Amino acid sequence: MDSYLVTGASGFVGGHVVRDLRRRGHDVVAAGRRADRLPSGGETFVGDLDDLARASHRVDVVVHCAALSSPWGRRAEFEHANVTGTARVLDFARRVGTRRLVHLSSPGIYAAPRDRVGIREDEVDARRPMNEYIRSKLAAEELLSAAADRSDAPEIVVLRPRGIVGPGDPSLVPRLLRVHARVGVPLMRGGRGLVDLTSVENVALAVRLAATAEGVHGEAFNVTNGDPRPFGEVLEQLLRGLGLPLRGRPVPARAAYALAGALEGVCSVLPGRPEPPMTRYTVTTIAHSQTLDISKARRLLGYEPEVTLDESLAGYARA
């Protein structure tokens, strides 16, 4: 049985990964900043990624889930959390002789204000990142790609799970619900844009497969449920499960994108740089179809989604 250290274990995805691995009998060090939110039932390491310099756990696999994830923020904050933080994880893995590092990146690196269907892993345009989060995730992947060529590096595998949902989701669905309660959810292009979501349990499955698959050093893999659906239909199903009526607001996509850009410009010069009520990235994700090709994960990892989107939406509503 492999032993693991999972960063970001006090968060939504990292916590699921820890619990999934422990259920299967693995020894797992749950690493995170919030001791009160780390999964119980095993060893923990309390601290941020800088603190890994004092960690001495000998583990076979490191799973790097920790990240600062937001459509808005300061470049320096994202740089430290997502680029310097990834470097700290890599340093730890080298120092303790870890066999493999599984890094959770983001398909936000594919973002563009247009429809993109069946995006493959090599279809990344890094020239114009839409926000500082995306810039930092691109830089973290570049750092790992360079490290993969070094003889002292662990085997490195990158996963790009899109739109992670399920019980305990603290970000994606709550953001939608706040907007729904406040003003109604913008429905651009009639809500027909395809969204390609991933059940959190399927992310944990992909992590297990990426930790053990042969011949995948230096590879990146898209991960979704493989079940793209129109945004409006997903929203209506979620709200129905929560007993809420749909409050949609028809909004022209082009005008929304322009307004979001203007709001970003204003908020960037206001004291404290408050997050705009709407960002270009948010508009892009709900106005345009963006789906991922997961055939590479199926072929090389043996990945097949086990939990359906219907089950995840129902599970969130119950929770």
Rank of each mutant, 00 (worst) to 15 (best):
Ala81Lys: 00
Gly73Val: 08
Arg88His: 15
Ser40Leu: 14
Gly85Ile: 11
Asp51Thr: 10
Ala66Glu: 09
Ala67Asn: 05
Arg34Lys: 06
Gly47Thr: 13
Ala67His: 11
Ala66Leu: 09
Ser56Leu: 14
Arg58Asn: 07
Arg88Asp: 14
Leu52Met: 06
Trp72Lys: 06
Glu77Gln: 14
His57Cys: 02
Asp48Leu: 08
Ser40Pro: 04
Ala87Asp: 15
Asp50Ile: 04
Val83Lys: 04
Asn82Arg: 00
Asn82Ala: 02
Arg34Pro: 01
Arg88Cys: 15
Phe45Cys: 09
Arg58Asp: 09
Val89Ser: 04
Val46Tyr: 00
Pro71Gly: 06
Asp27Arg: 15
Asp27Lys: 13
Asp60Thr: 11
Val28Tyr: 03
Gly42Leu: 04
His80Pro: 00
Leu68Lys: 04
Asp48Ala: 12
Arg54Asp: 15
Phe45Ser: 05
Ala76Asp: 07
Pro39His: 01
Val61Cys: 00
Asp48Met: 11
Val29Arg: 04
Arg74Gln: 13
Val28Trp: 02
Gly41Pro: 13
Asp51Ser: 15
Arg33Gly: 09
His80Glu: 11
Leu38His: 03
His57Tyr: 14
Asp27Tyr: 10
His64Pro: 14
Ala35Asp: 02
Arg88Ser: 15
Asp50Arg: 14
Glu77Ala: 11
Val62Pro: 04
Arg74Met: 03
Ala67Phe: 09
Arg33Gln: 10
Phe45His: 10
Val62Lys: 00
Asp60Ala: 14
Ala67Arg: 08
Val63Ser: 07
Gly73Gln: 09
Val46Lys: 00
Gly42Trp: 08
Val83Arg: 09
Ala35Asn: 01
Phe45Glu: 05
Asp48Glu: 09
Pro71Ala: 06
Arg88Ile: 13
Ser40His: 04
Asp36Phe: 01
Arg88Glu: 13
Phe45Lys: 13
Glu77Ser: 11
Val46Gly: 00
Val83Leu: 14
Phe78Trp: 00
Phe78Tyr: 04
Ser69Asn: 12
Trp72Thr: 05
Gly47Cys: 07
Glu79Gly: 00
His64Thr: 10
Ser70Val: 03
Gly41Tyr: 07
Ala35Gly: 03
Arg74Gly: 06
Gly73Trp: 01
Val83Asn: 07
Arg88Gly: 04
Ala67Met: 10
Leu68Ser: 06
Arg75Asn: 01
Leu52Tyr: 10
Gly41Ile: 08
Ser69Tyr: 11
Asp50Met: 12
Ser70Ile: 04
Asp48Asn: 14
Asp51Val: 08
Trp72Asn: 05
Leu38Ala: 07
Val59Ala: 09
His57Arg: 05
Ala30Leu: 10
Ala35Arg: 04
Arg33Trp: 06
Ala81Leu: 02
Pro39Ser: 06
Val59Ile: 05
Ala55Arg: 09
Ala53Asn: 07
Asp36Trp: 01
Leu49Tyr: 06
Thr44Val: 15
His64Ser: 12
Arg34Tyr: 07
Ala67Lys: 10
Asp51Arg: 08
His80Tyr: 03
Asn82Val: 05
Ala31Leu: 13
Trp72Pro: 05
Pro71Asp: 13
Pro71Ser: 01
Asp50Trp: 12
Val63Asp: 02
Asp50Phe: 12
Leu68Tyr: 07
Thr44Glu: 05
Asp60Gly: 13
Asp48Gln: 09
Ala66His: 02
Arg34Gly: 01
His80Lys: 14
Asp36Glu: 14
Leu52Val: 09
Leu68Met: 10
Thr86Cys: 05
Val63Gln: 00
Trp72Gln: 01
Glu79Met: 00
Phe45Gln: 12
Asp51Trp: 02
Gly42Cys: 12
Glu43Thr: 13
Ala66Asp: 03
Thr86Ser: 08
Leu49Glu: 07
